[in-house]
Design a protein around this nucleic acid. Structure first.
Lengths: 138, 138
DNA sequence: CTACATGCAAACCGTTTGCACCCTA
DNA sequence: TAGGGTGCAAACGGTTTGCATGTAG
């Protein structure tokens, strides 16, 4: 089901702003903060207010079209399209750059924890922290 | 090496406030926010300002006596003693309670990523998200 | 035409900082 | 008694919200 469908079903209007924000999140390969999405739009000479960006991101999160992420050491929230699938991240402790990791080593762990704790596990988040090739030598 | 030694070596004074905060972090078994530490102190009828709590936590983090943690969906930072060792967490998406998981499924993954990406990996963070036994039925 | 979307400015809230005073070593 | 520690209030920065206006359906 595509974005238009999902929006229609949830009674959301399909506005230019929403599609622009979705496009930015679809094209980029790393999670973006509200502020950097806002800056992308500005660079494209598109006028949107920051609050619209936040409100849009909130709506899209509620509709499970995008997901919110936070990382240790960052004071802002990041967003990425659900289409990116299940992934992990490698954060540089110096320059804060984000690298995507597609390999997931968890597998059976989730089921183990579910049995042990009687929780219903919805998902997990695994981030690696270290120094990227550019920063590690300095 | 104990806390006193570490503080002495870093030229930090050993004040009552610092030991009180360390004690709270040592006793508790789950990560705490600055605000909840502040409240603990209040309950013990100890007068400390919130900014002292923050400054202390910052110092202790720099000295690697405690570590900072952030979780998806929380807007505050959590702290725990390094003495707790390497652990993972299970966060309830409804009541936001935190459960500690001692099993770590990562092992070889870290080395694999190090080779693949040429990063120096310092550590990783794995959190599970789901619904706790109390919340899952509601 | 109606309900949702948006811009703007103000409010929010966790966190940080400047400054004067206090206390440990 | 010197230099770090602390309280208080103000500043900060990311995020949210109230309100009046704009626009999709």
């Amino acid at each position: 089901m595509d974005y238009e469908e999902i929006m229609k079903q949830n009674g959301l209007k399909r506005t230019k702003n929403r599609f622009r924000i979705l496009k930015i999140l679809d094209i980029g390969d790393i999670p973006l903060s509200a502020g950097s999405i806002y800056n992308c739009l500005k660079e494209e000479e598109i006028e949107v207010s920051l609050s619209t960006v936040y409100r849009t991101l909130e709506k899209l999160s509620e509709m499970n079209i995008i997901r919110k992420l936070t990382f240790n050491g960052d004071n802002s929230t990041f967003f990425e399209s659900i289409k990116k699938g299940h992934r992990h991240y490698l954060i540089c402790l110096k320059c804060r750059s984000i690298t995507v990791l597609n390999k997931c080593p968890i597998k059976g762990y989730q089921e183990d924890i579910e049995k042990e704790t009687s929780y219903i596990i919805e998902g997990h988040k695994l981030d690696m922290y270290g120094y990227c090739p550019k920063c590690k030598d300095k």
